[in-house]
Each structure stands twice: as C-alpha cells, then as structure tokens.
Design a binder for these strands. Sequence first.
DNA 1: AATATCAGTATACTTTTGTATACTGAACAT
DNA 2: ATGTTCAGTATACAAAAGTATACTGATATT
Lengths: 129, 129
Amino acid sequence: MGDFKDFIGSDKGPQCPRTYILALTDTLNVVSGKWKLPIIAALLRGVSRFKDLLDSTEKITPRMLSKELKELEMNSIVERKVYSQTPVLIEYRLTKSGKDIANVIDSMIDWGMVHRTQVITNPEAGEVS
Amino acid sequence: MGDFKDFIGSDKGPQCPRTYILALTDTLNVVSGKWKLPIIAALLRGVSRFKDLLDSTEKITPRMLSKELKELEMNSIVERKVYSQTPVLIEYRLTKSGKDIANVIDSMIDWGMVHRTQVITNPEAGEVS
DNA sequence: AATATCAGTATACTTTTGTATACTGAACAT
DNA sequence: ATGTTCAGTATACAAAAGTATACTGATATT
C-alpha cells in the first residue's frame, strides 16, 4: 500500500499520488486537535453516551463534545444511534474504521517512545519534558 | 510497545500510561499543522536549503518555513548545519527519528486508503470527496 | 409545583495558527 | 555604486480552533 518514501524522486510535479494525499489528510483530520483522541479512547473503552463521554473526557465542554462527535460521525468514525425510549437514549459507537485507527495510534506511540529514547541518549536535543 | 487498546479498562484513573500520552503528543506535534508534512516530504527527497525548501513547498512563506524548521529542530526531527563559507551555506537534514517518521505516515496512509474503500462500499456515509 | 436528568444549543469571547507584505544584512558580481 | 543571492526577520492582520457561561425542551421524580 502507501509508502511515503516511494513518492520521492522528482522535485517538480505532484511528487505523490493524489490518493495518498487524500488518505493522509483523512487520517490527520481524525487524529488532529485537542479532543479527538481522548474521545476515541473513551469510545474504545465502551463509553457511549453523551453524558458519560462528557464525564470521562476531562474538561471538555458540551459544545466541544457535540462538535467533535458530529465531525467524527461525518467522517464515518462514529455511528449515532437513537433509541426512542423515554428518556431518549443516544449511543455513540465506533465504526470498523473507528476501531481500526487504534493501529495508527499504536504506530504513533511506538515512534514517540523510540524517539524519546533516541533524544535522551543524544544529549544535544530538546523537547524531553 | 505501546498498544492503545490495552489501556482500556477502568474508566476512572489515568487510563493510559503517561509515557504513552507523552509519546503520542510528541508524534502529533510533528505531523499536525498545515506545513509539517510537506516540509518533511521535501527533506526526505533530499531538499536541504532554505531557498530550495521555499521553492518545493508550494505557497509557504519564509516566515512559516522559518518557524516550522525551528520547531522541527527543537523536537530533534531536523538538524541545522551551518557551513561558514561565503556565501554562507545552511543545510537542514532529517535526523534518524525524522526519517523514521515515514513509517508512521505510511500507517496513516494505509488506514486512510482502507477507510475510503470502506466508506465507499458502505453508502450511508459522508466524507468521500 | 418544583427539581432533576439527558442530550444537547446559543452567544460571546480568547487563543492559536496561518497569511501578506515588506524589509535586513552580509558577501559577492558587474 | 548598484544589483543579486542567501537566509532569514518584522509588523500587522485574518482565520481557525477552543473556552466560558448560560440556556433549552422533553420527560420523569419527589
């Protein structure tokens, strides 16, 4: 599949298949920003209701949670199910893609961990907080 | 190494080793924003001088390029080498970590590609532009 | 009748991120 | 002396992302 290194060659021209760029942009949209990953983490733990997501995502406001869930739903990361009970029950659940993104997150964690050890053993560098 | 799914369990408490969060935050800092990936792509292609980076990163302003390179340098993704020739020559080069992040980008592309095919075959979803 | 819960919305900010445009200073080259 | 290249900086502004605080409406509980 996609190999970021392999679109390297000429310096003029698109340099990278358009589909790679689109795929990458999609992924960045899902993981970027202050709240996306904390929300996905909660959903992965099985938290599914608005109120519970509010409680398990520290310091988020309802406005932000609402906005982020809408975006995740638009991007097919989350499904919103309405149960017309009383009181109404609304469940947010990860789609297949939503669950699969955990693999991407794992590779991000892996890189970050290795990077930190490299920076520590290589003392002229910053950022190790 | 890090497995994002495995910190799922309790809903109170840290839920995730602090080191994972730090590693993940580092990675997000490196890939988030409008210019980081285009710059890293150019560096992967071997472009190394400020002027050349300006030319191969379409529409970026010198202010932005300067700012991004400083951040990448602070995070040990890029090394800045000064050759005291005349005229002065300054080279930006990816560190080991900087090159390795291509693997993370690959996994982002992979997820994005699979996600797009899933969304297409599952018509009630949006975002397929 | 008053209060609580669920699932949000409304309005008005502040902060962060990115843009536009012009300029600097050192060292040549003509 | 005038202009060019390299590697940026300075100032001001616009747009995007995030925060704070209060409110809504439907139903149920006391």
